[in-house]
Design a binder for these strands. Structure first.
Length: 232
DNA sequence: AGCATGATTTGCT
DNA sequence: GCAAATCATGCTC
């Protein structure tokens, strides 16, 4: 995965994105998310994603219908849905399914493989794994923000490659930060990657040695309450 | 290692 | 106002 120019990377076809969201989520693991920064590729291998599917999904931004904020999700597949949250974080999603049906895959973590000097200059952390192991971290590292909202992943500075280094084992769990007590297991990650996000995984998952073997890193622990600022 | 907090947008109540 | 698909920091044990 050492290529000189972003031009040498092939974008995924439009048909790739016009499929069931869960299928796409799994198929995105191991591919490379790349930002073309004036001819230089900055990005990395996708190792963690979450699916948000339709107005019936209570955790999906579209669950209460179309608004100015979420309208990109209602548009054609293969575009970036980028939104701002928690006061200072941008989240990158890939729009899926047919036009008119709001669904997307949130990119939650990368292995920072390209343009690491640029990434490091934007991230004030020491260890490599902390550079892009969270949805807000990776947008900061890659310089992705609201200007990229609606960008076509086939004809803008943003790209996801056909090239894939598929994970050997895919872990599944409930989605992070989704407050419903019984959330759908729509978070997927490369079990062997050290760069999977560890945010709020409770007391059992150590930040130094992420759970790399089996499925859910949070077995039986409801992902409830306590999102955002700690209340009380 | 665990918990609280500040950053301060968007959209619903 | 409040909660949300969050993160870095700082305090406490």
């Amino acid at each position: 995965m050492a290529k000189a120019s972003p031009r040498s990377f092939q974008p995924l076809s439009r048909d790739f994105y016009q499929r069931p969201t869960l299928e796409i989520a799994l198929d995105l693991l191991g591919r490379y998310l790349i930002v073309d920064e004036g001819g230089k590729p900055v990005g990395g291998r996708i190792v963690e994603v979450e699916a948000y599917i339709g107005e019936d999904d209570p955790a999906c931004h579209a669950h209460l219908g179309r608004t100015r904020r979420n309208e990109v999700m209602y548009g054609p597949p293969g575009r970036a849905y980028v939104y701002f949250t928690y006061g200072n974080h941008w989240m990158l999603n890939v729009v899926t399914e047919r036009e008119g049906f709001p669904a997307a895959v949130l990119i939650r973590a990368l292995e920072p493989s390209l343009g690491q000097e640029t990434i490091r200059s934007r991230r004030n952390v020491k260890s490599e794994r902390d550079l892009t192991n969270g949805p807000g971290k990776l947008t900061a590292a890659l310089g992705i923000n609201g200007h990229d909202n609606g960008a076509d992943l086939r004809s803008s500075r943003l790209l996801i490659t056909r090239e894939i280094e598929a994970p050997k084992e895919i872990g599944k769990s409930g989605r992070v930060g989704v407050s419903a007590g019984s959330d759908l297991p729509w978070r997927f990650f490369d079990s062997a990657s050290p760069c999977v996000s560890l945010y709020r995984l409770g007391t059992r998952a150590s930040r130094r040695t992420p759970r790399t073997t089996q499925n859910s890193p949070v077995p039986g622990v409801p992902l409830k309450g306590r999102t955002g600022r700690g209340r009380k």
